[in-house]
Write a protein that binds this DNA or RNA. Structure first.
Lengths: 199, 199, 199, 199
DNA sequence: AATGAATGAGACTTCATTCAT
DNA sequence: CATGAATGAAGTCTCATTCAT
């Protein structure tokens, strides 16, 4: 990937996150990237292709830790308790979001409008994640650390709590009243208690 | 509001929800509404004004039950337990979303891009909601039905769980494997357990 | 002429003078006149017709004193000297302009773009004026008060000097350095001296 | 300046002069220039900017001879008499108008509607012209070739006479009864006589 | 590989005019 | 007579994309 190409991607990521894909013009991207308009189309045949060059890998990166080959074998053994697992994953994903908030925004904003992105997200990725995480959760269930709910539901409840935390964090970033440490602990405590099997 | 005006709003709501505000052209809206394009601009001076005529009231409607004057006085007394309250609110908002999913999508999609909408959402509405709900939650805390967490955090945890349920429901609407009754009960059980004060 | 009609004309005169005919919209006129848009078209079938209802009489009014039936017979006798005549006409036309500057601006602005106005101005009016004024000037020439130049040229020289004075006056209306009395006297002195027959 | 850009300017000059700025559409200009409409807006962001790209330099060109650095020093010495000076300037400006009548028309037509043009005309240019010409006229006054009138008034009287001649010339261009040589001489004779100091 | 002038389809918007009320 | 909602043609301007250099 040439230097200009990198600058184009970087500029596009910023602008798409800022104004949305549809409201961003290729000429703005070119200007911010410091390249000629034509140069964009030398590397990406269409504006959509540029979006996909950003969004498709972003989907993968967002779910990266769950896709590692070692996830099933190695990590599974590593985490003795669900709490350990949850803390590890939350820490890892939050730190990722801090560094890649633009990618996250782009994926979330554009997912509803691009069936191909949805397909990727759903079929390819989500199935892998659920399958792998399913094994892990089954083990935690057997250990009496998770209730006997469908794995999909448990994942959803975890994800929504963490996403809620992430969004609130983003919105309150500059507010002095946001005690990040406490909010994160509250969220984790909530999830753990909510997922405690009833005796 | 004339007949044509209603048709314009209806068409715009559908298209904005479907393709997003920026990707929807006024000529498409006119065509779907069965009016001349000029007619749109007789009623709404700009496309943005048309969006606001839809989104601003939608923000209010989405939060309507929390804004009722009676909310504080009447409902507060009515709900003996937090569970009753949670069930009532969830049922009410989910049924609202079923009937107004387009409005919901528009607000969620456009909120990040329109500071005026954000302001409305934040300052005017959010403050009212939090203030009122705060009083209610304080009472539940005194009754030992909620943990001693900040009201903002409790609201966030409830909202994220319910929104996660709503989104999953929307995505899986046509899937036969989605057992709505069970998912909703699971979600409520999760929230209730997660918010049980530690003895 | 109904009340509304008068208000329409008045509003149109103001706006045409202010922004120009082409740049003024009928809806603006309607708004300023305090009538509905449709009302304008009940009285004037087209926007152009509204312009003509203003401009055509304005052309006549601008040249009014030269069109009076009495001009040839009565006035001719009245003015013993060219200076008397010049002073009378200048005073009369300047006071008219003060009261009807908008009409004047409209005629001047639109004359180049409307052949029908030009035709009116040229054929109908200009010929009458020149013919009548020609007789007067011939008499002054015979009296040795005007040089033996073509009447058209003399009229042109008088008109351009007076118009130059009128325009400068308009532009400097608010300037304190504009000594109107002196400027007018200078202009008249200039014309009179310029038109003194060479011994 | 690319070839297309030149064609755009040329077409715009013709059409603005012919129909007026407000009544000329950018699509007409594009058609006459033989370019796509979008091309106009690549070079001039708005229609107004296109007008200014024409009118602003035109204002300068119209007053060019009075702005030359050499005007004060060189020409002042060169012209022994006011008559020489007047004849030179008239010949120069008339020949300029013959070649640039469209520019002249545009400036005159649009000046009343564009405060920025007026400002340029007034502040920047007029002050320079008056200042320079003032020095020249003071010298002619000292030589007893001009009356003791304010320089502004003298300039106005000269300009209005010449402009009146130019306009009449333009209107009668095709008329066989227009004897240009005689009209010009009459005009100059009128100005010279009108500006003769009273003994 | 890179440029940026050129394109033309289509975006939003304005406007003179009509017509049912 | 008066209204003002409705129209659709036309206006200005934007944009993704192409192509000669």
């Amino acid at each position: 990937m040439t230097d200009k190409q990198a600058r184009i991607i970087e500029a596009a990521v910023q602008m798409f996150a800022e104004k949305g894909y549809a409201a961003t013009s290729t000429s703005e991207i070119a200007k911010r990237a410091g390249v000629a308009e034509g140069t964009i189309f030398r590397h990406y045949r269409t504006k959509k292709e540029l979006l996909m060059a950003i969004a498709a890998p972003a989907v993968v990166k967002l779910l990266a830790p769950f896709l590692l080959r070692e996830f099933r074998d190695v990590l599974q053994a590593e985490y003795a308790s669900f709490e350990q697992f949850l803390r590890a994953v939350v820490a890892n994903r939050i730190s990722f979001l801090d560094r890649n908030i633009s990618l996250f925004r782009i994926v979330v904003q554009e997912l509803p409008f691009h069936p191909d992105l949805q397909r990727q997200f759903r079929d390819i990725v989500l199935s892998q994640v659920l399958e792998r995480i399913g094994g892990l959760f089954d083990r935690f269930k057997a250990m009496g650390q998770l209730p006997d709910w469908p794995n999909g539901a448990i994942v959803r409840l975890c994800v929504s709590a963490v996403m809620g935390y992430a969004v609130a964090r983003m919105l309150n970033r500059s507010s002095p009243s946001w005690d990040d440490e406490r909010e994160r602990e509250t969220t984790i405590a909530f999830v753990l208690k909510g997922l405690t099997p009833s005796s």
